[in-house]
Amino acid sequence: MPPFRSALCLLAALAVLPAQARDYSYTDAHLHYVDFFQETDGMTELLKQMDEHNIRHAMISGVPVAKKWHENEPRRPRYYAGDDAGAYWFSATDYIVAHALEKLDEKQRSRFHPFLSGFNPNDKNSDEHLRRLLETYPGMWQGIGEVFTRHDDLTALTNSEVPRANSEAMDRIYYLAAEYDLPVMIHSNITSKRERNPLYLPELEESLRDHPQVRFIWAHAGTSKEIHRHQEKLTFLFDEVERLLGLYPNLYIDLSWTMLEPYLLDSEGKPDPRWLQLVERFPDRFMIGSDVVGKFGSLGEYMSGFDVFLDALPETVAHKVAGSNFLAILPRQSQDN
C-alpha cells in the first residue's frame, strides 16, 4: 500500500475512535444521611459507595422532618407522600449526623461537609438552637440546610404554618449564617404544581437581595418531581435562573437530580445548548448532587448520570461543576483544613 494511502487510513481510523473519556472526581453537593424516618444505611455503606464511584467529598445533612406513622394507618409508609399522615420538625437529625461523623477517623471525616438542618424555619427561636449546636460541636458544621420552605405536598403535610424563604425566622438564620460564614442550602419551589409562572420566586429573591453577604445554594433551582408530574417542564425556569445569576453574585445553583431531565438533557438525552452556555458563562456557580435520602446504593448512578452534560462542557468547567465549586463556597476555615 502506498505511504500516502497508509497515512489516510490511519487518519480515518483515528477519526472514528471515541474521544477519551474524562475521569471525574465528584463532590456530592446534596446528600441526606437519613431518610424521612431518620433511618440510614449507615456510614460504612456510604463510604463504600463513595470509594467505588470516585466521590471524594460530600455535603452531608439530616432531614429536618420526620414522617409520622399514624395510629389509623395499618401499614408503615415508605415515603413522606405514602399516606395522609403528617410530618413534624425533628431537631435530633443533626445529632444523628454528628454522632456518625464523630466515629470516623480524621481522614474519613475530612471528606464530609456537614450542614445543620434540624430546625423549624417558622420559629424565631431557631437561630439560637443552631447557635447552641455550633457551640456544642465547634468546628464541625460547614453550612446550613437543606432548609425546607416551599416543598410540594410535604409543606401541606408538615405540622406548622407554611414556611417561606423570606420569613422573619429565616432572616435570623441568615444573620447567623453570615456571622459564622456558613452557606445556606434552601429548598424553595419556584412555583406550585399548577401555576405556570414563578409564583413563589419573590420569596427567595427578597432573601438574596437583603442578605448579600450570605452564599445561597438553591436546591434543584426551585424544581421538584411533583411539579414536573403536573407541568412536565417549566418554560420560564431558564430565563429566571439566568436573570438571578446575573443580579445576585451570592446565588449558587444545585443541579441535583430533578434538574438533569428535562432541563440539562433533552428528550433524546442530549445536553441542552442553552444550559451549557449558561454554565460556561457562570462557571463557578453550579454544582451537582445526588439528593439521596438515607439509602446509598444508587449514589454512583446519580452522580455519573451527569457525565453526558459534563462532557459537553469545557474540561476545566466540567471539573469545577463536578467537584470543586461546592468546596470553594465552604467557610474559609474548612477550606484551610
Rank of each mutant, 00 (worst) to 15 (best):
C9W: 02
L17Q: 15
P18D: 01
Q20W: 05
R22M: 06
Y24A: 09
V34P: 11
V34E: 03
F37V: 03
E39G: 11
L46M: 13
L46I: 12
L46G: 08
H57K: 09
A58Y: 05
I60C: 12
I60Y: 09
R78W: 00
A85F: 00
G86Q: 04
G86S: 13
W89M: 01
V97W: 07
H99T: 13
E102V: 00
K107S: 13
R109E: 06
F112V: 12
S126G: 06
R131S: 11
E135N: 14
M140L: 15
T149A: 10
T155A: 01
R164S: 10
M170Q: 11
Y180S: 07
P183A: 06
N197F: 15
N197M: 14
P198Y: 04
L204T: 09
S207D: 03
P212Y: 00
I217D: 04
T223I: 05
I227T: 06
L234P: 08
E242P: 08
L255I: 03
M259C: 11
L260G: 02
E261D: 07
L265T: 04
E280L: 04
D284S: 13
S298W: 02
S304A: 12
F306T: 11
D307M: 04
V308S: 06
L310Y: 09
A312N: 12
L313F: 00
A318F: 10
H319V: 10
G323K: 04
G323N: 06
L327H: 09
R332T: 14
